[in-house]
Each structure stands twice: as C-alpha cells, then as structure tokens.
C-alpha cells in the first residue's frame, strides 16, 4: 500500500528526515516510536502533505501513485487520514458541517454522489457510538473549547466517518487519561480490516497495550534505526531509548 524510499525532508535549512525507508501493507499496523525530536511527527506531517516541510529527496508510493505529487486534499481523497497531535480549533464551523463538506468533496473526487442529509446523519449516529461522542459536541464549533480527550475522540470519529485506507495517528495518546485512551483505541481497533493500514506515531508504549501493532520501528535522528515485532515496544518501555542511541553512536552513523 505504502512504500517510503529514502525520504528526506527539511524545515527551513534544517534536515529532519534523513532517509526513511518503510513499507506498509494492507491490513498491517505499524508503530513508529522514538525519543522526542527524532522526526516522528515530521514523518506524519510529510505523509499528510503539510507544506511547511520541503521534501529534498526520496519518494513515497501510495497504491501505485506518487503521494508527494499530491495536494493535501487529494491525499485525503485518495484515502490518507492524519489524526492530529494538536487538532486545530476552528471557530464558526461546526464539526457536522465540516465533515459533511469533507465527505462530499471526497465523494466527488471518487465520482460518487453526495450524501443527503438523512444518509449523512444516519452514518454519523452509527460512528458516534464507536467513540462515545455526543451529538451536542458535534454541533459546536470544531474543537473549540473541547477538552484534550474530546479533541482526540473527535479525530477518531472523523476517521471513522471518512474510512481511510491508511490512517496515520500522530501521538493520539498524548494527554489522554486511561479511559479516554481506551475509547480511542477501541475506535481504532474497530476500523482495523484487511483492506486498511494504520501507522501509529507514539512516544510511549502505553497505547500499544490497546492497539497491538504488527511492527515496531524506532526513529532516531531522522532515520529508522531499528525495526522489530511488537515485543520491541516492551523492550523500549523497560529500557528506554538510551540503549538504542548508544547502538547508533557505536555504529558511527
């Protein structure tokens, strides 16, 4: 589904991604872990099409198409979804109205008819249950005055509505208490399917207790320095990142 080859990206003059290689197949869940400042969020943002970053090298193939060539909205229509680490507050635009616009734009891109009000509401009701989100929250301005947990649940709710092929969750666990974390994780798990893939970007192993990944990758200084099965996450939880840093320094990278 997704093949990242030697991806390099800068912000301004500073190189953040120094050659990322990663292959994600349909049905898989990949966790990307690493210490702060290693480039995890940059990778998520570059995949979603944030223009603050300059891609200086490498390529990203998504279902046979050049992802880097697409505008952010085209990537969304092609099936990429980024759950934001810090969901943006948008005064004056309700979640409902926002999502309806987004869904119908995506459907237009795919040559499908727009959903009418009834179809949309029915779908919304169904997906609301998934993340235990309240109707009243959705009629309010998007994320405005939402608590941290409400914002993250709203991200997962939007993901459930848009049913992306590839979901990228950027530190979705940060700032969540255990109940909110469980709700978010259940939402993500409910969407797991053989046709879909997920990339979880996280600093802590905690989320992985609830969403069990197929692979764990450690990102450090802009490169994936270690990959392994889910057990790698436990090792990281136990020993921290220092041993990986040491390994990397030793190898003289």
């Amino acid at each position: 589904m997704l093949t990242i080859s030697d991806l390099q990206a800068n912000i301004g003059e500073k190189q953040i991604l120094k050659g990322i290689n990663l292959t994600v197949k349909a049905g898989e869940v990949h966790a990307i872990m690493g210490p702060n400042g290693s480039g995890k969020s940059t990778l998520a943002s570059v995949l979603a099409g944030r223009e603050d970053y300059d891609v200086t090298g490498g390529s990203v193939d998504f279902e046979g198409k050049d992802l880097l060539d697409m505008a952010a909205e085209v990537r969304a229509a092609e099936g990429i979804f980024l759950a934001f680490q810090y969901p943006v507050e948008i005064p004056g635009v309700s979640t409902t109205n926002f999502l309806k616009t987004a869904m119908n734009e995506i459907r237009k891109y795919r040559g499908q008819d727009s959903l009418d009000a009834v179809q949309f509401l029915r779908l919304m009701k169904e997906k609301m249950k998934l993340v235990n989100i309240d109707q009243s929250l959705l009629s309010r301005a998007l994320n405005e005055g939402f608590s941290g947990g409400e914002k993250k649940r709203n991200e997962i709710f939007q993901m459930a509505m848009l049913e992306p092929k590839l979901a990228i969750l950027d530190e979705t666990d940060s700032g969540l208490d255990i109940d909110a974390l469980r709700i978010v994780a259940e939402g993500v798990n409910a969407l797991r399917s053989p046709e879909r893939a997920t990339i979880l970007v996280t600093h802590y192993q905690r989320l992985l207790d609830y969403i069990v990944p197929d692979y764990v990758h450690v990102l450090y200084k802009g490169r994936i320095v270690k990959s392994g099965p889910k057990e790698l996450a436990f090792e990281l939880e136990e020993k921290g990142y220092d041993w990986i840093k040491a390994e990397v320094e030793e190898a003289g990278v």
Binding site: G49, A71, A72, F81, V88, V93, L99, T101, E105
Partner: peptide, 25 residues
C-alpha cells in the same frame, strides 16, 4: 489561519473552499 487551512485540507476540503469556509465562519 494556516493551521486551520491545512487541517481542513487534510480532511479532503480543497484549498479554495477551505479558505471560503474559514472566511465565512
């Protein structure tokens, strides 16, 4: 707000329409 624009675009709303929505709001 560039952040808001990117957020909207990342959900599939084309840039021009996202701008219009933000301005209208």
């Amino acid at each position: 707000n560039e952040e808001a624009l990117f957020y909207m675009r990342s959900r599939g709303i084309p840039q021009e329409q996202a701008k219009t929505l933000l301005m209208f709001a």
